[in-house]
Design a protein around this nucleic acid. Structure first.
Lengths: 337, 337
DNA sequence: CGCCGCCATCGAACCGGTTCGACGCAGGCG
DNA sequence: CGCCTGCGTCGAACCGGTTCGATGGCGGCG
């Protein structure tokens, strides 16, 4: 069931079969017909490993995902799905590598074993050892998110700072004077997780520019933490009238805390931030929020990666998206009590 | 940077390097030392394609996932994560194939191109053409979920029928007399999706056995549908006092509908079913429910697949899990109005 | 002291494709 | 009618590993 067998049965040489399949050299119509008949009869498909070895490329992309122990957020899931779909559209397969840190066997296998033609990296830290590692391995890669000094690396990202800034201006326009940022977990912030840090910076800058009183808290990525966190906010800073968040997992807890405190959104409290569209719409009331265009980012990452693979010497490219805020119904004018 | 180069620099033959790395034949300590030094210096790692070609196995597992357009449920996500982690624990990589139907390029590539040593299939229909396809390709595979007549195939699954039966008995014990099953979407039911059909059968059998009035509805996998669906239930069958569901995505909508109708759980209405632990605990009040042990199923699937790969002639094995129901606080005695 | 056996190593074949240079044969042109 | 062109095909080398049979050198034993 290999190419030699096909050649034998079709009465031609192995190279002719190869050319008939790839079309890289002309083959007479009659011969192609005969070969195709044999192939169909035997249900033959070329061995991918042999092809990869000979061609020097695997037609496979690597996707480095956070290990499952840390459960994926909606946004991360969106990245994975869209990367896989975009790759499939180019007839490429996707190899998953669950890697948190630097020194990971699965990551090393992918980087060094030439198992993939390129890598897409997500959950980027401001200083990310994996970026360094891939650079020195001279393996094409694109990051979803970007390190502090991207240098020659290719990346796509959402401008968290700009989005948070817009949220703050929106709240300031509505008259709010003391607002809180509900950030991701303290561990992520400490690890240098880009979106968390850039959101914090954007929040502080924007509130300062508009003369608002700014409060920030970190909140673990789970509903229970969201509840506890919001109750602490109410106790500690009772005059806060609006929250900006990038922590999707905490939302159910925040909702429960609002309900428990008898606060109605947006009458008594405004809520906004960067939230997946689905979650924003499932909230009650639907959230005024910016949505991370995960599908578009994933597709873009694949496109950039393919461009980089096709032309190894090309100038690094990147894309910084700044999606609009969808005005729904979770923000309102500040009311004086 | 290939094995020949290592051999040259270490002053030995290519085969000696290979044996030093694999340990399949004894190599003197001094030679091993010398080879390892060279390897460390050049940061060499064997080319995976060449190795796969020579060995006849790829050290890669295929995982067939639903295409991203249908967004993954929490349970499906759990499968993917645990399969990837379990594979990584065995130093295996995972190749993703987003395939819905039968005639999918990505699926065919994986099946026929010998890109993987075995396949894990999820979202199984009662009659699933992919199972047939894999059988005839004589590629080892394990399904998460099982077809109606598994024949010689290997599988792991949760006994949805038994779990739903337990939920019904639990409600019957509490005095409920008219209960509704909120199933997955009508499309999935029509397609022959196993859990949906087995749940429905179990529900009807159990309610009949306990003399309850049974109602069933299909509900699209989204919050908005859950809300609409529950309101329709209240209108159509006002004397229903409890619901059993396997539709996690509909839960937020159901919650909102309950709230809107002024019903308090469990005082006025009981809610139970098969629900991911995280969602059950995030609900207010926490749901009495059975949890699909996705992590365990994923790990089991990998274990079975490896056993099958190791011994191609082995008798088919399977595992039908029946996790306990966690008693939380969403079910209570029926109250007569 | 000579033979036997084992340990370490080598060379060659093989896995299943791709690709390059060469070649035979047919048709067109002078 | 002979030569040139070019299309279609072939054979061989190559990609980078693994594996098997063979061989050389050494120590132990009779």
């Amino acid at each position: 069931m290999n190419i030699g067998e096909i050649a034998r049965r079709a009465g031609v040489s192995r190279s002719t079969v190869s050319y008939a399949l790839s079309g890289k050299r002309p083959v007479s119509a009659a011969t192609v017909q005969r070969i195709n008949d044999v192939i169909a009869e035997l249900d033959y498909r070329p061995n991918a490993s042999a092809r990869a070895l000979a061609e020097g490329r695997t037609r496979t992309l690597g996707l480095v995902v956070p290990p499952a122990s840390r459960r994926l957020t909606d946004v991360q899931l969106g990245f994975v799905g869209s990367v896989v779909d975009a790759a499939a559209a180019h007839d490429l397969d996707v190899l998953l590598s669950p890697s948190g840190g630097d020194h990971d066997r699965s990551f090393e296998r992918i980087v060094n074993g030439r198992r993939v033609d390129g890598v897409i990296l997500m959950e980027i830290l401001l200083e990310d050892p994996r970026v360094e590692r891939l650079s020195q391995a001279s393996l094409p890669f694109v990051t979803i998110g970007h390190v502090e000094h991207p240098g020659a690396s290719w990346w796509v990202d959402v401008d968290y700072g700009a989005l948070i800034t817009r949220c703050v201006h929106h709240l300031a326009d509505l008259g709010h004077e003391e607002v809180v940022l509900i950030n991701r977990s303290a561990e992520l912030v400490a690890a240098g997780y880009g979106p968390a840090l850039r959101s914090a910076t954007g929040f502080l800058d924007a509130t300062a520019a508009r003369g608002l009183t700014a409060r920030t808290v970190c909140c673990a990525d789970e509903a229970a933490a969201g509840l506890a966190c919001f109750e602490q906010i109410r106790t500690q800073w009772p005059s806060v009238t609006a929250a900006v968040t990038i922590n999707e997992a905490a939302l159910p807890g925040v909702q429960r805390a609002l309900h428990r405190a008898g606060l109605e959104v947006p009458r008594d409290f405004s809520l906004t931030g960067v939230i997946a569209e689905r979650l924003a719409e499932d909230f009650h009331p639907p959230l005024t929020a910016a949505d991370v265009p995960a599908v578009e980012l994933g597709r873009l990452a694949v496109d950039l990666l393919l461009a980089q693979i096709a032309d190894a010497g090309a100038e690094p490219r990147h894309a910084l998206l700044e999606p609009p805020i969808s005005l729904r119904s979770s923000t309102g004018a500040r009311r004086h009590h």
